[in-house]
Simulated scan of single mutants.
Amino acid sequence: MTSLSVQEIAARTGYGDAYYFSRIFKKVTGLSPKSYRKSSKG
């Protein structure tokens, strides 16, 4: 788990637009980045 913001993760993975990154993330995982974080907390 990371404390980086979605915008920071998007930038580090080559996406200049956090909104676009979030859309692609949801398409691949089935969850938004926020939902993914909530489901991954143990």
Rank of each mutant, 00 (worst) to 15 (best):
Met1Ala: 08
Met1Asn: 04
Met1Tyr: 08
Thr2His: 11
Thr2Ser: 14
Ser3Lys: 14
Ser3Thr: 12
Ser3Leu: 12
Ser3Ile: 10
Ser3His: 12
Leu4Val: 01
Leu4Gln: 11
Leu4Arg: 15
Ser5Phe: 08
Ser5Gly: 13
Ser5Thr: 13
Val6Lys: 03
Val6Asn: 11
Gln7His: 08
Gln7Ala: 15
Gln7Asp: 11
Gln7Glu: 12
Glu8Pro: 01
Glu8Gln: 13
Ile9Asn: 05
Ile9Ala: 13
Ile9Val: 15
Ala10Cys: 05
Ala11Gly: 04
Ala11Thr: 01
Ala11Asn: 09
Ala11Glu: 12
Ala11Leu: 12
Arg12Ile: 03
Thr13Tyr: 07
Thr13Ala: 00
Gly14Glu: 00
Gly14Asp: 01
Gly14Trp: 07
Gly14Pro: 05
Tyr15Asp: 10
Tyr15Val: 00
Tyr15His: 10
Gly16Met: 02
Gly16Arg: 07
Gly16Asp: 13
Gly16Lys: 11
Gly16Tyr: 02
Gly16Cys: 01
Asp17Ser: 13
Asp17His: 10
Asp17Cys: 06
Asp17Tyr: 07
Asp17Gly: 10
Ala18Trp: 05
Tyr19Val: 02
Tyr19Glu: 09
Tyr19Lys: 15
Tyr19Ile: 03
Tyr20Trp: 13
Tyr20Thr: 04
Phe21Leu: 07
Phe21Glu: 04
Phe21Asn: 03
Phe21Gln: 06
Phe21Pro: 11
Ser22Arg: 11
Ser22Pro: 08
Ser22Ile: 00
Arg23Val: 04
Arg23Gly: 06
Ile24Ala: 12
Ile24Phe: 07
Ile24Val: 15
Ile24Lys: 15
Ile24Asn: 10
Ile24Tyr: 13
Ile24Met: 15
Phe25Thr: 00
Phe25Asp: 06
Phe25Trp: 07
Lys26Glu: 15
Lys26Leu: 14
Lys26Ile: 05
Lys27Tyr: 13
Lys27Phe: 14
Val28Asn: 06
Val28Gly: 02
Val28Cys: 05
Val28His: 08
Val28Phe: 12
Val28Ser: 01
Val28Thr: 06
Thr29Gln: 09
Thr29Phe: 09
Thr29Arg: 07
Thr29Glu: 09
Gly30Trp: 09
Leu31Glu: 14
Leu31Val: 00
Ser32Pro: 02
Ser32Ala: 09
Pro33Val: 01
Pro33Lys: 14
Pro33Gly: 08
Pro33Phe: 02
Pro33Thr: 00
Pro33Asn: 11
Pro33Met: 07
Lys34Ala: 09
Lys34Gln: 12
Ser35Thr: 05
Ser35Ala: 15
Ser35Ile: 00
Tyr36Glu: 04
Tyr36Lys: 05
Tyr36Thr: 01
Tyr36Met: 06
Arg37Ala: 12
Arg37Val: 02
Arg37Ser: 09
Lys38Trp: 07
Lys38Gln: 13
Ser39Asp: 11
Ser39Ile: 04
Ser39Tyr: 02
Ser39Arg: 05
Ser39His: 03
Ser39Ala: 15
Ser40Pro: 03
Ser40Met: 15
Ser40Gly: 08
Ser40Asn: 10
Lys41Arg: 10
Lys41Cys: 00
Gly42Val: 10
Gly42Glu: 08
Gly42Leu: 14
